[in-house]
Nucleic acid binder design. Structure first.
Length: 656
RNA sequence: GCUGACGUAGCUCAACUGGUAGAGCAGCGCACUUGUAAUGCGCAGGCUGGCGGUUCGAGUCCGCCCGUCAGCUCCA
């Protein structure tokens, strides 16, 4: 309701045009003045950067945008309101439910509720969903009530809702509001859409446990995930996209393309076994990186899979991370009564440190860069395991750089370049880079001198800026031993995984008392940088499979060329062609099966082989091949050498 | 580790309220000798994840364990 006011305000729209309205005009009235269609689609309004309810009056000049489903903030508002609608449905069906928080997410929303001793099974979701649809049809308006802190507390004390009371405790007087629609009222900052009627297509997706405030020591709540749309068609599209994303799941493709397998019963969970094709893929990736690392001055090393417990006592990994390690192989007891034995290595760094210590180092030698594709074992929590993205045995493209504090920035820059080169070569255009810094409120929990941290954090910032990397900072996310930079890529289901990582370490040099001699003949402590552009080869390949949907670049494809003789009589010619291609290091297979050409083509297409060469009588007579590409279909018949000249470069493994 | 769902042939899936496990693909054999995304016929393939219980009878119901999936928590 607009209050009548003498004064007018000026509304500036996104296209720069302006409207004049009486002060106190609501967002909805502004939308209506622009057009009936817009008013119908309007979900919220953004005024001077703040997203608000359409029902709230505008009291001063403002830059305004009417938010609809097409705006991210419009969607978020829609989903937030949907969470409230779901809560209303829950309240109707489960009168004893206690509500905690119910935010929008991207995409969708959830609500965390306390059901006491009751559990909610997945088949109850349909009933809740139906109730939501029924309530939505009533088209109740979302009404905002600003309340005092005392009133808010009174409300939830009467309800006995400790969670909301805890939330209110953290709020200031004057910023507390409730939203009410139909029979449901909730502590909420807002904003919300005008009414429930817009929520035409709600869908509840899953139910899961979640801890109050994300803390394991708190009670576990029931989290219900859902999504909703203003049109049924949009929901169908969403479900279709989800179905398609599942087609790109690396677990499915890994099986179909014969890349890797698990035997969780006999070999163990989280322990992938690489089949010949997957191993070819791994080795090719490994090869291109090794080639590049040689150019950049890395020295290869090779270390055992186990080490004495003493090594890990010195490094601090044992017994500190005991819960995450496979139990040690105990061989006896030392004179001091401590257990003696070996640990399956959870990290490569202690061994690399020992290699650094094999020699005295002058400042002239630094940086020393020791690289190893090292396989490590960690006993990850059972609930964490999944496909190749979280496993218990994996190979890191690890390297440790030992350098002076003054060299950190330059080293960081070159590792960023290398990582970007890797991501670029594999066509990862969308990734996030996160700089993890100290928690400024709790610097005591970190090891390493304060000025070193300050300098390293600045070095990372500058290295990032100078490499034109778009990174964001996360204070408090640093490891206790140093700040780091992580590269994150999403999988087919939109989950972000850390791939590449660059970490500064002040801890290990200290613990192992590493030294180098500086230009004044003084012993100094080097800084260590852990870095892995792929991160773990397993996870990287898992994400890569989903990224390319199993269609790898030709240089990486396990089988690069499939030769398809049209009949048994042409197998000899097929072998001649294969031999010629193999001299050029091309990975060739011949399909000698007793099948039709159509079948063999289908087989090769399904396996996503980049090139198929069909050979029969005509080709054998002329020394040619009939080329079919996975990407573009039949390409015509050409002499073998022409094929090599034309596509040979595609098979060249390189990061450039 | 926690919450929920799930586990049937190498793979993808069937089997009404408990009545004794079935199909397609893959495999093998035979025929066909093939020209750009599935040739035909036949054969074989199973301790229904494991252990225990209820029952005349369990793939189906109950309990425990193992594992998979989604999420939470954790992640040197």
């Amino acid at each position: 309701m607009a209050e009548t006011d003498e004064t007018t305000i000026e509304i500036t729209l996104p296209d720069g045009s302006t409207l004049t309205h009486p002060a106190g005009t609501t967002g909805m009235e502004v939308a209506e003045s622009i057009g009936a269609g817009l008013a119908r689609d309007a979900l919220a309004i953004k005024a001077n950067g703040e997203v608000r309810d359409l029902s709230r009056p505008l009291t001063e000049d403002a830059e305004v945008a009417i938010l609809t489903w097409d705006d991210e903030e419009g969607k978020q508002t829609f989903w937030h309101s949907s969470a409230h609608l779901m809560a209303e449905a829950l309240q109707a069906l489960y009168p004893d439910v206690t509500f905690t928080i119910g935010p929008p997410i991207d995409p969708g929303f959830y609500y965390d509720v306390d059901l006491g001793d009751q559990t909610l099974s997945a088949d109850e979701l349909d009933a809740i969903e139906d109730k939501m649809a029924e309530l939505a049809r009533r088209d109740a308006t979302y009404e905002r009530h600003e309340v005092s802190k005392a009133n808010a507390i009174e409300h939830y004390e009467a309800e006995g809702n400790e969670y909301k009371l805890e939330l209110i405790e953290g709020l200031e007087e004057g910023e507390i509001s409730f939203y009410e629609q139909g029979d449901f009222i909730d502590l909420c900052r807002g904003p919300h859409i005008p009414s429930t009627g817009a929520i035409k297509a709600p869908k509840l997706l899953s139910v899961a446990g979640a801890y109050w405030r994300g803390d394991e020591s708190n009670p576990q709540l029931t989290r219900i995930y859902g999504i909703s749309f203003p049109k049924e068609k949009l929901l169908e599209d969403f479900l279709e996209r989800r179905r398609k994303a599942k087609e790109r799941d690396h677990r499915k493709l890994g099986q179909e393309l014969n890349l890797f397998t698990f035997d969780t019963e006999q070999v163990g969970p989280g322990l992938p076994m690489w089949l010949p094709k997957g191993t070819t893929l791994r080795q090719t990736l490994r090869g291109v990186l090794q080639q590049e690392q040689v150019k950049q001055g890395y020295k290869p090393v090779c270390t055992p899979h186990i080490g004495r417990l003493d090594l890990y006592r010195t490094s601090g990994h044992y017994p500190h991370y005991e819960a995450d390690q496979f139990p040690p192989m105990v061989t006896g007891q030392g004179d001091d009564g401590e257990e003696e034995g070996y640990l399956l290595k959870p990290m490569n760094c202690p061994h690399h440190v020992k290699i650094y210590q094999n020699d005295h180092h002058s400042y002239r030698d630094l940086p020393v860069r020791l690289a190893e594709f090292g396989t490590v074992y960690r006993q990850e929590q059972t609930g964490e395991l999944g496909g190749l993205t979280r496993v218990r045995g994996f190979t890191q493209d690890d390297a440790h750089i030992f350098c002076t504090p003054g060299q950190v920035k330059a080293e960081f820059k070159s590792v960023i370049d290398l990582t970007l080169k890797v991501l670029d070569a594999l066509d990862f255009e969308e990734f996030e880079a996160q700089i993890s810094l100290r928690d400024p409120d709790d610097t005591a929990k970190y090891t390493g001198r304060d000025e070193l941290w300050t300098r390293a954090e600045q070095d990372i910032r500058e290295a990032v800026a100078e490499t034109d990397l778009d990174a964001y900072e996360e204070p408090g996310e640093a490891a206790f031993y140093g700040p780091k930079l992580d590269f994150m890529v999403e999988d087919a289901l939109g989950r972000a995984w850390q791939l590449g990582t660059i970490q500064v370490d002040y801890n290990l040099p200290e613990r192992f008392e590493l030294t180098y001699v500086d230009e004044h003949d003084a012993r100094k402590r080097p800084v260590m940088i852990h870095r892995a552009p792929f991160g773990s080869l397993e996870r990287f390949i898992g994400v890569l499979i989903e990224h390319c949907g199993g269609t790898f670049p030709a240089w990486l494809a396990p089988t690069q060329v499939q030769i398809i003789p049209v009949g048994d009589d042409f197998v000899d010619y097929a072998k001649t062609v294969a031999t010629q291609l193999r001299t050029d290091d091309i990975r060739v297979e011949i399909d000698t099966s007793d099948e039709t050409v159509g079948y063999k083509i289908r087989e090769a297409e399904t396996q996503k082989v980049p090139y198929m060469l069909v050979v029969g009588g005509d080709e054998a007579d002329d020394g040619t091949v009939s080329v079919r590409s996975h990407a573009d279909g039949p390409q015509g018949t050409v002499p073998i050498q022409d094929f090599l000249d034309r596509v040979g470069p595609e098979f060249e493994p390189t990061l450039d």
